[in-house]
Design a protein around this nucleic acid. Structure first.
Lengths: 167, 167
DNA sequence: TATTGTTATACTCTATAACTATA
DNA sequence: TATAGTTATAGAGTATAACAATA
């Protein structure tokens, strides 16, 4: 493999290159995921909801909305769909009658397990394109970029529990 | 700065970490862009259409659909919106009466210039979170991941001209 | 008064299927 | 027959504003 004739330090990366790469990559991933999940009647976005609900303690809709960086009415719309499919259950909150708790049903958990399975090849394919240290690197860099865009510094959604806000 | 006690080589990066980082970062960027473009009455997705139309030669709707990795009817829906706003023009193809060419209007070009301007701070903010070599690195890694997901190997949308398919 | 969730409404993006016109 | 584009239709995600119930 020959050395490039232009030293890499000279070639500046523009913001739009990063924007395009980010967009193309995410969209490719999102579409592949949607296609893989479709036979199970679930979208990629809905999968993220289910995965979020499965990790950690029971959430209220409001907490879910904050966690998803979405509007409460958006969250409700998606929950209604998942409810209709019997994948989540919304119950009265034990101590605050305004709130509703959201939890996976047994079928929701079963479906989620299948979703993790059918999504695995896609994630594996992405990882195979990278060396282990490159995979660490891209996650670290993406995380830095995400934080630079959200000054409120929401940690990049680690799976299970985390010291919860209040309540 | 102290060394980590766990050598980084031991900690494997999982596919879901990459998936989450990709999603969170893209969504943050997309939402920020939408908010910045909203006063101009254009969405982030529409901006990508306009930018694609501005670079290189005139396209037909079909070519645009392939370029955007979208369905022709999706492309049409967006073009109708842009047409209504007076930002694009769809004319009869000179030699093939089935086709329609799509091009920016003068106002489309003016609006696109403004969109580049109002989007610049967001792209700059992303870049500031990275060293120049890191910016190159993340673009390269994202591109590799994107290509691993799209076996048809569509090059990651470089701006202007490229040796076009056929026609 | 502030908060949680719902309702009504609307817009964008997405895609499928049936169709027309042209090549 | 195959291709370019349209139409009709539908569903998913998004958000705003007005509202009811509760804290």
């Amino acid at each position: 493999m020959r050395k490039r004739t232009i030293p890499p330090a000279i070639r500046m990366t523009s913001g739009s290159e990063l924007a395009i790469a980010l967009r193309v990559t995410y969209l490719a991933f999102h579409r592949r995921s949607d296609a893989a999940f479709a036979p199970l009647g679930v979208t990629a976005d809905q999968f993220v909801f289910l995965a979020t609900l499965s990790s950690g303690r029971t959430l209220t809709q409001r907490e879910l909305a904050r966690r998803m960086l979405s509007d409460p009415s958006t969250v409700r719309a998606i929950l209604v769909l998942l409810d209709r499919r019997g994948l989540v259950e919304r119950d009265a909150h034990p101590t605050d009658a305004r709130k509703r708790t959201v939890a996976l049903t047994a079928e929701g958990r079963r479906t989620l397990r299948r979703l993790w399975e059918v999504g695995e090849p896609i994630r594996a394919q992405m990882l195979q394109a990278l060396q282990p240290d490159e995979a660490r690197e891209i996650v670290a860099l993406l995380t830095r970029v995400a934080q630079s865009l959200t000054p409120q510094a929401i940690p990049v959604g680690g799976p299970p529990i985390s010291p919860e806000d209040e309540e």
